[in-house]
Nucleic acid binder design. Structure first.
Lengths: 195, 195, 195, 195
DNA sequence: CATGAATGAGAGTTCATTCAT
DNA sequence: GATGAATGAACTCTCATTCAT
């Protein structure tokens, strides 16, 4: 497969991504993707053989282009609290974004496909995030920014709350204010005043 | 509709419930339900006209038969902490229950169907639960069982963590120990020692 | 499946039979049969799930309705030579019948599907025919109608020649005269004069 | 067409031959051949325009490279019986060869394509073989090796039996012993003792 | 009420064939 | 000459939905 094909692959993945964002995972058919891409029925099969394969590659692409919140645009002398705040704000933006998110599709996919723990991308990302937050809190505690007896516990708590907010956003609906309240609650728990 | 028909409706709903627990919402077809119920194709249409209608009625039935944790089997002189613990244990049992739960189906359904806030069953249940927990914590604070500055915030935090655990159970997988850790973290936040 | 369905099954099998006679086995699609039967696409699948299944049932029907040459229309006092002649004439009629024969389809099917010996319908029929002819020749020998040192060998020889004629009819083409010549040769080998 | 192209044509035909031996005629697609040859889709069309054309050229190549049993490796002073035996052995080898034979493909092709008699390759070969065997038998009779009243009939009988054995080998299955029995029967009919 | 046969729309998939490079 | 991406026709199969009985 030449240079040209690689471009087309990417084009298909990007277009399919839109479709998944719009319709989730289960409802998406090869036909949907064919039509969104404006290519021929058989054409799609030259590149991919199922919506599942396409979806997994979309996810891979997603994580490769990685929106690494923690490394992007953070000044070197930022405090732990500042970094955590930035992270939470990023998460808020993401979870309020109704249309521009793969969240629904990801959940739908993983509802029916439980890869063995070790290979579960979602789990890996979750664990990685917990670890990072834990380190961050520890740093904050050392600097006197945070108060916290169980940093690992606090980190996990934060992640589960975020998961809860994410799923709530997709099901019962959620507003900016509601998210703010939760995030403030979390920060206060860490002893951060809201002055 | 005679008595007989009402019985049959219930029978169909109960049987369909099993199907939804097994396959979620989106993948369930009228055919699946017809086969599970061992009735005729046309027969099902006499009672229901779509999987959506069936699913919504299953949910209604569910909440009517309401497993009201807070009222069932609680001695009148139970302490707030005891009641909260009971509730959390109940939630744990539910979210570890792989096969016997409508969780997946509910999420799948609400991903695509955002009824206006006021009518969203999920939201109502969520809010109701928050309220009850809030009261419970307040009572606990008055009794000196809990320490808590923002009871409403704590209640919401608990519910979001539970949501986070629920969705995690369905996607990345979760063990009994992992749930325990989170619940303990919550209780400690309320100043409950684990003696 | 009620009485009605059984009729329809038969109707489909009969119609499909025509299709197989016309196109052999491999080229026949479910669509061909659907169109020949003038039923709906899905309708056919209510009764059969593949052309293979249909074909095998056509064959079964065929052998059940058995054109039992040896039992039909044979007077009780017929001589062995008469019966053999009748049989050969029947075979001749069959193998000259260009359009009205499943021969091609049968060969095509068995080219790709070698069931274990024991279950091979073709083999069973072949062996049965050999046996019957063998008996017939033995009787003829006893009656002084035939001369033959190796009745079993002669019987097999006859069947293989018939097979050879059948396949030749379908490939290189064959005329009535050509068949006659072979049959006469066989009869002469058995010492039957052609007066 | 240059030298190079001629080589490539031959290469394609040889490779396609393998494919036909493996899958018969009808099931073989241009794609199959393209893949077996490891050339490009378009490339194949530069040389051939259909599987039919390819198949016919394979057959032509086959008969040109002619496995002339009667001329190969026969000492000049071989008796008629020896030559006939050699021929029959050759045929036996061929028809027991499951995988390395075009038999199935040839039959499949000629089932659907009855070229006018005069051009039918199969027929020509059949008739030629009959003639040669007839001559052989005549020679044998003159030499006192064979006893036979109708040499032409005997020759045709042999060829039809061989056809019968060939098709049986492809459909109901046949063993070395079974072939031997038939060949012996034929030879005995010619008055050849098996000493 | 209940049945289940029948229909037809629609999704999946494979290939023959073409054509720009 | 040679390539292989692209197209579109043709098939397979599954269901939601209807309707005569």
């Amino acid at each position: 497969m030449g240079e040209k094909s690689i471009q087309k692959r990417k084009y298909i993945l990007k277009t399919a991504r839109e479709v998944f964002m719009d319709k989730g995972f289960k409802s998406v058919t090869m036909k949907d993707i064919v039509e969104a891409c404006e290519i021929s029925r058989g054409g799609l099969y030259l590149y991919f053989e199922s919506t599942e394969q396409i979806f997994l590659e979309v996810l891979k692409m997603e994580s490769e282009e990685g929106d690494d919140v923690f490394s992007d645009s953070i000044s070197d002398d930022a405090t732990a609290a500042e970094i955590l705040l930035l992270f939470l704000k990023e998460q808020k933006k993401e979870l309020l974004r109704k249309k521009n998110s793969l969240t629904k599709a990801v959940y739908e996919y993983f509802f029916d496909n439980h890869p063995p723990r070790k290979e579960n991308v979602l789990k890996k990302e979750f664990d990685a995030a917990v670890l990072i937050i834990e380190r961050l809190i520890e740093t904050g505690v050392e600097n006197g920014e945070f108060v916290c007896e169980d940093c690992a516990g606090a980190a996990r708590n934060i992640m589960y709350v975020l998961e809860g907010l994410k799923i709530s956003a997709q099901t019962i609906g959620i507003t900016s204010d509601m998210v703010d309240k939760e995030l403030l609650y979390i920060l206060r728990s860490l002893g951060v005043g809201m002055e």
